[in-house]
Structure formats: structure tokens, C-alpha cells
Design a protein around this nucleic acid. Structure first.
Length: 421
DNA sequence: TCTGGGGTCCTAGGACCC
DNA sequence: TCTGGGGTCCTAGGACCC
């Protein structure tokens, strides 16, 4: 197999730049929801030493001094540009697997050897010209090695955006130059642990015996170990149906108020229900979690979670919201101040396949709720909850969420335009 | 004062059964 | 009262990803 990992460079920043050319060449960061912390950095801001996840208040002085540009995240814009990039890849490759908003694997088996590099170079030019996004491509016989190759393509301009690992010499050299904690699948916990055991590079890691890796890291570590040696071990198919859907937010201000939390939980649950229906799915389980502010060591902490299991999988807004509120009531305690909450639906099944099981349940009520949800979906498109249950908060769900550095919404969806205040 | 959101997979341990 | 192994299912928690 030949895998090509196509990765958009500094994706969120590049999206902002695509519509604001004046940001080109300037240090830029994009913030998380609530303007909490840095989630994307341009090369210039990386060079300034700003780390991923830095709380915004720590770099705000740079913004005030005019040496750093900042934008709130604008997910509808990023989603739109992502779809355009993926569309171009899908037309160019026999098959693609979309891995995240800014990454996809192209499966290039069957493409003649001599065409591989020209194909990739052409894609880089086209995506830049048509969408305005710079991408890098790594080619290799396994996904993990394609990731390694992609790092090189990104880091060294000499590759002009494409790096290929296709023989033993290149593989060993690349792994010797790759710190072990840069490997896909080795995170912040295992990285330091491996280094403490004398495993500093990806190459060192591959030289350890399989049983050693298995004992230390389990089956997932062994998969990474094999992939780095050119043996395919990472599961092929991403399951078509999501196994869980989560909607959660941090609040701009802490709250212990039942009313307010009820409104928020209702909204999160309604959004989960809407996502379920969009996927054509239904869920057996609805969980609610609450977090106090873990950074406030002076306050009492409480991180409860509760799950309601429904007799029949549901996707209607009233059923999901009802279950979420029941779960909420079992764990809510008024003496704490909460900073974040969320709703997760899981144990998800195909919505079409559950029709037959419905006779156990009150058909009339169910059908009415499903019908009601259908109508709500027609009126409410994402981000515009014109129709909602009485428990849901009035106004936009994003009320109470900070978004002070938002760029104009450039990509042309009607919903987005209505969102401009 | 201010610290993201949305996922997946694996494993250990408890409950229960024979 | 104490005694045993083995299987399955479920859940919580940990680790990882972007």
C-alpha cells in the first residue's frame, strides 16, 4: 500500500489568512471556544515560543503591543474550507479516509509509481490556488510512517511540500531524526517514560523487542512499533457511524444556579439530538457531566457524571432532553460552582433499524415526538435555534460564551450571515 | 479575572453465573 | 463457614488523537 497523508499547514490560521491576506507573514494565533486558550499558531507565532494550549491571558500583552494577531475560532468557516479541500483530494485519489478537519489519508494503490510525486505536487498547487490553503504531503507504506514523512515535508522547505519514505535507508534515517515523542501514537505520558528508559528516537523504539513494547504499552504500542517498521497495523476503516456524540462548553462565568444549568443542559442535549438525527442515528444512553473549576484550588471540587439508559434508542429532542435532565438531577448539588458541563449520547444505533422495536413503547407519543423533532430540524438549522423546548434557554446557545476576536464570516452560508451581530 | 471541544480504543476490575 | 476456577458483561478510567 502507498499512503499519502495530506495535512493542512496551521489550518485554522491558514483559513483566517485565506480571507485576510494582511495576516500573511504576521504572527497569528486562533483561540478556542470561549477565547480560552491558543489552539492554532502560525509559523511566526510558533517561532515566538507560544505553545499550543497557552491560556490567552498569558499572551494578551503581545496582542495589546501589536506584535501578535488574534482571532476567535470560527468553526463554520473552517468546516467549509475543509470540505472544499477534501473534495479536491477525493477527486484526485482512488480512495481517501478523512481523518480530521485538516487531515486525510489518500490510498494510492494502483497509481503508477512515476505519477505519485507529480500527483502530490499538483494537489499542493491546486489546493493553494482554489481554496487558499497550504498543505504538506507525506508518502509511505504505512500510516504512521506517512505521518513521519509529513513532518519532514512540513519542516524542511527543501522538500517543497512532499516527502516520501520508500526504502530502508530513508526509513532508518528518518526515524533516527525523529524524537520518540513526535511519533503518532506516543503521547505526553509515554514520551517522557520512554526517554527515561533510554529510548530517545523513533529508531531506538523500533530496536526494542516486541515483548518489551507490549509489556510497557500494550497492544496499541505494538501497533505503532510495527507501523514504524513498515508493517501495516493501524485499523483501516473508520466506522461510518459515530459511537458517541458529545456537546459541552466551558462557561464564561462559574454558576451553581439550577435554572441556568437546566437551560444549558437542555441546549446541549438538544444539540446532541439534532446531531443524532442528522446522522440518521439513535442512542440508548444519555450522560451528563458537570465540572467545577479545577484551577480554583481554593474552591471545593466536584466532577460528577450520570447516565440514563433508555428502554428504546431515541433521537427526538424531548426524549434526549428529558433523559439528560433526569441524569442532571441525580448528580446536581447546589453547593458547588460549575465551570463546565456537557451531554454525551452513546450506545448509538442505526435510527432506521429500530422501527420494529417500537411496539413495546407508547407508539403515539413517540411518533409525535419524532414528528415534532423533524419539524424542528426543518426550522432550526445549526446555530439558529428558533424553535426550542420550554426548558431551553432563550436566544442563541452561544450566549454566555466569549467570542471577542471573531473575524467577519466570509464563507457564504446563510446561517452564518444571520449569526453576525 | 482569564485555562477548548470532540472523538477513539484498550484495560482492569467488579458483578454475576455456572 | 469456607472453598475454587473460568467465562461474560459492564463500567470507569487512562491514554491517545486532532
Amino acid at each position: 500500500m502507498v499512503y499519502a497523508l495530506v495535512d493542512c499547514n496551521n489550518f485554522f490560521v491558514s483559513c483566517e489568512r485565506a480571507f485576510q491576506p494582511e495576516l500573511e507573514g504576521r504572527p497569528v494565533v486562533v483561540l478556542s471556544n470561549n477565547d480560552g486558550c491558543v489552539v492554532a499558531r502560525s509559523n511566526e507565532s510558533k517561532a515566538m515560543g507560544i505553545k499550543m494550549g497557552t491560556p490567552f491571558f498569558k499572551v494578551k500583552h503581545l496582542v495589546d503591543a501589536g506584535t501578535l494577531e488574534v482571532r476567535s475560532s470560527n468553526y463554520s468557516l473552517y468546516g467549509d474550507l475543509s470540505r472544499r479541500v477534501m473534495h479536491i483530494l477525493a477527486e484526485a485519489a482512488p480512495r481517501i479516509e478523512i481523518y480530521s478537519i485538516d487531515e486525510a489519508f489518500m490510498l494510492l494503490d494502483g497509481v503508477p509509481e512515476a505519477d505519485l510525486l507529480p500527483l502530490c505536487r499538483d494537489l499542493i498547487v491546486r489546493i493553494r490556488r482554489w481554496v487558499g490553503i497550504p498543505v504538506s504531503i507525506g508518502l509511505a507504506p504505512t500510516k504512521t510512517l506517512a505521518k513521519v514523512a509529513n513532518h519532514f515535508a512540513k519542516r524542511y522547505p527543501g522538500y517543497r511540500g512532499v516527502c516520501r519514505i520508500d526504502d530502508e535507508t530513508k526509513r532508518e534515517k528518518a526515524l533516527q531524526l525523529t524524537p520518540v515523542d513526535d511519533v503518532w501514537g506516543i503521547g505526553w505520558r509515554m514520551g517522557p517514560k520512554l526517554k527515561g528508559l533510554g529510548v530517545n528516537t523513533a529508531y531506538d523504539f523500533t530496536r526494542r523487542p516486541e515483548v518489551w513494547v507490549h509489556r510497557l504499552m500494550g497492544i496499541t504500542g505494538v501497533r505503532t512499533w510495527k507501523e514504524l517498521q513498515g508493517m501495516e497495523a493501524v485499523q483501516e476503516e473508520t466506522p461510518a457511524r459515530r459511537q458517541s456524540i458529545c456537546t459541552s462548553r466551558s462557561f464564561a462565568d462559574m454558576t451553581g444556579d439550577t435554572q441556568e444549568l437546566t437551560l444549558k443542559i437542555s441546549d446541549f442535549a438538544a444539540m446532541c439530538a439534532q446531531k443524532l438525527r442528522k446522522d440518521g442515528s439513535a442512542a440508548y444512553c444519555v450522560s451528563v457531566f458537570l465540572y467545577t473549576n479545577r484551577f480554583r484550588e481554593d474552591l471545593d471540587q466536584y466532577y460528577p457524571q450520570a447516565t440514563i439508559r433508555l428502554p428504546v434508542p431515541a433521537s427526538s429532542t424531548p426524549e434526549i432532553v428529558g433523559a439528560a435532565l433526569r441524569a442532571f438531577r441525580t448528580v446536581y448539588r447546589p453547593e458547588f460552582l460549575y465551570k463546565k458541563a456537557g451531554v454525551i449520547v452513546h450506545d448509538i444505533v442505526d435510527g432506521a433499524s429500530i422501527q420494529g422495536a417500537m411496539f413495546e413503547y407508547d407508539d403515539a407519543v413517540r411518533l409525535r415526538q419524532d414528528k415534532l423533532s423533524e419539524v424542528m430540524d426543518q426550522v432550526n438549522t445549526e446555530g439558529r435555534n428558533l424553535l426550542r423546548l420550554a426548558t431551553q434557554r432563550p436566544g442563541h446557545y452561544a450566549d454566555g460564551i466569549r467570542r471577542e476576536h471573531c473575524s467577519r464570516l466570509y464563507s457564504t452560508s446563510w446561517d452564518d450571515i444571520l449569526e453576525i451581530h
